[in-house]
Design a protein around this nucleic acid. Structure first.
Lengths: 336, 336
DNA sequence: TTGTAAGCGTTATCAG
DNA sequence: CTGATAACGCTTACAA
């Protein structure tokens, strides 16, 4: 590998000048710049990123921590981040925490020890306090999919409450009155916000909010299965089930069929997130779009702007979900 | 950030000694080791990875290039690689090429310029020649999901032919004789191997291989849709369709329903890969397992062994697919 | 077992 | 606009 030194010798200039043309900092006379560039090409020179990093105290790398790597949800997010970063020659170092606070902390330390210039975090278990503390530290942090008031300028978040509202509102508009809700885990903020939106929609429609019509699931397919069984056993009457996410919605689908219901005629189901497979279910799942790719993109842009001083257009920090109408919800009238 | 120099001063030893305890190389007397470790803890010291990298010419980072980031297939692979790497304090730098040769080449150069110690590649468009050339170069390479005879010791691959054989064999065992096949793109090796397996199964059953019963799809849902329509229009009789992958299988499912068939009674369908959503379809998709996580893990291990000289157990380089029986295939007799 | 000192390939601060 | 030269924080012969 050729070094900057060899380039400078071949071009007949000093190290400093070569460095300048590499980073096109300062003004360099066009002719010398050409000379240097020719030399670089001739030697097939590529800068050594470690040396660069050591000298400049910048790694041009952005750490991304996601709570789990296996879900397609996170993949979309990462893809968006990577695409955005590569446009500016930055790269991402990815790691995942298996969804518990200890691993999340470890992941963060790991990324920091890697000299990442900034961090994009999608964490669920870590406390607000820890994140507030972290964001006061040296490495810039963007927190995805979470709203922490004290550091809201570091946060990119989705209006989950509105999403929950929309989901239930949709059911109401389709004429459903007997609705049950399968919520995500109680310790997850987004789950509780989605549930709050559900409550608001009911109240707005003057339908009493009965706790017996709310089941606390786990955001996994099993949550939907258990939720459906729970409500079935309870003897409650219901024509529609609103789910905290798509995974649980598929669980409901599968279990409802086991119990002999046909979908969507006997039961309307709505999910949340619009994950990839929601369009592969049958009937295709009506759901609420979670604009995670846009959010990822904005996270990357925030860093480009704040850390690397690139100026891009405006940066959006709060996102609103919209309905994705498909076939898993149908009019109550159409049901027997 | 504390440096190794401050640690050495506090501990009253030389730089070299501190370095030794960090890398627990050579023997260091227990008492001095303790002294140094205490100093490190006290100063909250973490090594600067750029400096380490520059001095040692090692980055402790492994570049991973996948052809696309958005599919859940690749996520599983990456998750497995990451998990394995972190056990040895290595990390992965991920990037994606949008599935064309130019981007794949760029991605590789990008990773190399990042001083990755090794590369794990899942590429489809790049030629064998390029990869052979690359693997003769300086940075060690592992090629996932592809078999190149000249450099087979760099390759971790799946027996796709066997998978294709198993898929069709399954249909035969369920009594189907009128089978059509929707293949992946002709320029993809794995697609052609799977198809070859299909052919072998038919021949073994003394069923003539008719080219009219093979459709060339695109590995996407649309491939399944087009394939089904094609066969439907052709007037061919068929009770079973074997698909080159799961995405196309879902396309067939959706389109068959549009045409009024009920599944699986009117049509048996089998996929390939066992991607996440294949268990969310209805009926749940019978498919062939692609052990991509195990393959990813082995790729990581190969590097741990060859590059970082960790010795792990035996490393498996070739994998065999197995059937994942679910409900999308049923006995021909059961069909009307 | 420990210390000394010469790099590793850049960037950045001064002068000029 | 360009050139010396000192960092940057660590590894690694080589000595002791």
């Amino acid at each position: 590998m050729a070094t900057i030194y060899e380039v400078s010798k071949l071009a007949g200039v000093s190290l400093a000048t070569v460095s300048r043309v590499i980073n096109d900092s300062n003004a360099v006379r066009k002719t010398t710049k050409d000379k240097v560039e020719r030399a670089m090409k001739q030697l097939n020179y590529t800068p050594n990123s470690a040396a660069k990093s050591l000298a400049s105290n910048r790694s041009d790398c952005i750490g991304v921590l996601v709570s789990e790597l296996k879900s397609s949800f996170f993949t979309r997010m990462m893809g968006a981040i990577d695409t955005e970063c590569r446009q500016f020659e930055k790269h991402i170092v990815v790691t995942s925490s298996e969804n518990d606070a200890l691993h999340e902390k470890e992941g963060i330390e790991f990324l920091i020890s890697r000299n990442c210039d900034a961090l994009i975090l999608h964490v669920e278990s870590l406390s607000d306090e820890y994140l507030i503390e972290l964001s006061r530290g040296k490495v810039p942090v963007v927190i995805l999919n979470r709203q922490i008031p004290q550091i809201s300028d570091h946060c990119i978040s989705l209006n989950n409450e509105l999403g929950g509202y929309l989901a239930t509102k949709t059911m109401l508009q389709y004429g459903h009155r007997d609705i049950v809700y399968i919520a995500g885990p109680e310790h997850k903020k987004d789950a509780m916000q989605r549930l709050a939106g559900h409550r608001r929609a009911l109240m707005e429609a003057n339908i009493p909010v009965e706790e017996a019509r709310i089941f606390s699931g786990d955001y996994l397919q099993s949550g939907g299965q258990n939720g459906f069984k729970h409500f079935h056993k309870s003897g409650l009457n219901f024509s529609a089930v609103v789910c905290g996410n798509d995974e649980m919605a598929t669980g409901v689908m599968a279990t409802a069929r086991e119990y002999g219901l046909s979908l969507p005629e006997d039961l309307s189901i709505i999910g949340f997130d619009n994950v990839l497979f929601s369009q592969y279910t049958y009937p295709r799942l009506t759901t609420i779009e979670n604009p995670i790719t846009d959010m990822g993109k904005m996270a990357a842009r925030m860093i480009m702007e704040n850390v690397y001083k690139k100026s891009l257009g405006t940066i959006r920090k709060s996102f609103e979900p919209v309905l994705v109408p498909r076939e898993s919800v149908c009019h109550f009238d159409a049901q027997v």
